[in-house]
Design a protein around this nucleic acid. Structure first.
Ligand SMILES: [Mn+2]
Ligand SMILES: [Mn+2]
Ligand SMILES: [Zn+2]
Ligand SMILES: [Zn+2]
Lengths: 150, 150
DNA sequence: TTTGCAAATGCAACCTGGTTGCGAAAGAGA
DNA sequence: TCTCTTTCGCAACCAGGTTGCATTTGCAAA
């Protein structure tokens, strides 16, 4: 069974409706290579001939977050982005040129640092965010080429 | 020479004016125990009988960021916060209850991880953000007491 | 000390991302 | 098909932040 079907049947099983908006948003987020903002999403739905009001988009996103289907990501540019909940915790490598986003999974995450925080200042970590900003392969190559041409 | 004087004389030396707003904002950020939003700042200036228009606050903050006196911090709640540039790179431990913010300096930061990113996916890291969200000592103690009382 | 000018300020209007109230439309089980 | 909710669209709203423009102010040269 593909991921879309799993999500849809879980929602159904929990007594939620499968509206065209709901299906379209989940599908769009599943097929997107990077997290989407509400605005991005609205545009994408329109590409697939599903016209939805922005209020509906926001409400549907809130619904899907509440039911653990998707989650929010903040890149600090004032726009909340969304993606389908991944199987595990991870971070992001965000290209400052083209905005491409890669998921980063760390073998030994920051558990040791979190324990240290507890010991040193009695701070009990509930969660953390770690984002890397820089140049993706393509953008870095482009940059190098430009520099070589001079 | 105290930090305030160093900052003021640097600004002066670079041909910038020392307006009452500028001095008040730098002083407020220097004495604040945590990063302040534009709104927080405006309120604090008013406490010190310095009334400033919000536009002026934003413009002054932009000026100070541009001249490396302060820098922005994003905690993902839609408000940009500001603090005086610290001497080095660091992270934050943010209490989800009382919003207290502690600076965290890591002995061996994430340089190894950044190198790995380069090797594995050719991503050139320019900078990163790492924030820990959880309960500060006081809030955690309060929580424990509450639970014990039941 | 006065004067001249660029830098800084206040105000009103604007922008963007996101939210709310409410009546109308549409899922889905009976 | 009927009925009960959930969901939808619309218009109005809110918060954080920005812009254009006319006025004021810091400060240094005269
Ligand atoms: Mn992690
Ligand atoms: Mn670091
Ligand atoms: Zn890129
Ligand atoms: Zn706290």
């Amino acid at each position: 069974m593909i991921k879309t079907e799993i999500i849809f049947s879980n929602l159904k099983r929990n007594g939620h409706r499968l509206t065209k908006t709901r299906k379209a948003i989940v599908s769009a987020l599943l097929t997107s290579e990077c997290p989407l903002s509400a605005f991005d999403l609205k545009a994408r739905l329109l590409d697939g001939d599903v016209e939805v009001n922005k209020t509906t988009v926001y409400r549907e996103l809130a619904f899907l977050v509440k039911h653990n289907v998707i989650h929010e990501i903040q890149f600090g540019d004032g726009k909340t982005r969304y993606r389908v909940c991944p199987d595990g915790h991870h971070h992001h490598a965000i290209c400052v040129k083209c905005s491409k986003v890669d998921e980063i999974i760390m073998e030994n995450d920051l558990a040791a640092h979190e324990k240290k925080l507890d010991k040193l200042i009695n701070f009990k970590v509930l969660h953390h965010t770690l984002e890397f900003f820089g140049l993706c392969k393509a953008c870095n190559n482009a940059e190098l080429k430009k520099r070589a041409a001079r």
